[in-house]
């Protein structure tokens, strides 16, 4: 059984349908990417998965549970974490306080401290700036905060919404390296990206979303070679 199983999901804002009946799944340990143009409905899909937006219909099964039965602030306790679009850091909390917010739902203090040390090993920049207000950091550093924070919740599934958005190419490279490191640790991930090539290169599988529908899906290598993907998303 898949870790995440989405069936005929529909989401609307007022009268406007943003997600028009999509099906997809993610298996334990996979890194799956969801690509698509601006406005395709990717962010809406992720927000629905973590309960920030209510679905209109369809079903979301996560780890054998119906997501509809989970309170919106309890998703993290069931193992779902998200790095939101635009990072969503708390600008007037320090870097360390931001990271600790990721562990808000946990009570195993000693282990949290160990993992904080590990996050700092992963992102030495954050260690140097741990007492600085997160709002004063550069975009790339803020993205590291958002990722470290999500990892501190010890998620079963980590959702990443455009982690490379607005970052310089060299930082994007770094962020993708980190994504691969996290994946190597066995964290299951759903990566939403506009940078389709990079995303498909690091993923096992991918889905393509267009105007609220999933129009293609399959092995990431196969998608990289797919004519339609190459024309529409890889600029070839």
């Amino acid at each position: 059984m898949s870790l995440l199983d989405v069936k005929n999901l529909q989401v609307a804002y007022g009268g406007i349908q943003a997600v028009k009946g999509i099906d997809f799944h993610i298996d334990q340990g996979e890194l799956v990417t969801l690509i698509g143009a601006n406005g395709a409905g990717k962010t809406t899909t992720l927000k629905t998965l973590v309960g920030m937006v209510k679905k209109a219909s369809g079903s979301i099964q996560f780890d054998g549970k119906d997501a509809a039965s989970i309170h919106s602030h309890d998703f993290v306790r069931h193992g779902l974490a998200m790095v939101p679009e635009g990072r969503g850091i708390f600008p007037k909390l320090t870097v360390e306080e931001n990271l600790l917010m990721g562990a808000y739902a946990r009570n195993d203090t000693a282990q949290i401290q160990d993992e904080l040390v590990r996050i700092y090993d992963l992102f030495p920049r954050l260690k140097e700036r741990c007492r600085q207000l997160a709002g004063t950091l550069s975009g790339g550093e803020q993205q590291m905060v958002a990722m470290g924070r999500a990892m501190l919740s010890k998620p079963k599934l980590l959702l990443l919404d455009e982690p490379s958005m607005g970052l310089a190419p060299i930082i994007v490279q770094k962020i993708f390296e980190i994504i691969q490191m996290v994946a190597a640790e066995g964290v299951t991930m759903l990566l939403v990206e506009q940078n389709a090539r990079l995303a498909l290169e690091v993923s096992q599988r991918g889905y393509v979303m267009e105007s609220g529908k999933i129009t293609l899906g399959g092995d990431a290598r196969a998608l990289l070679d797919d004519e339609r993907v190459r024309n529409a998303y890889l600029g070839e």
Partner: peptide, 20 residues
Amino acid sequence: RAMRATSQNPAVAGLMGVNV
């Protein structure tokens, strides 16, 4: 900390498990 986080970004605080 949760109070400050909520005042800065309630939606993301909720994502962290804070009952706003």
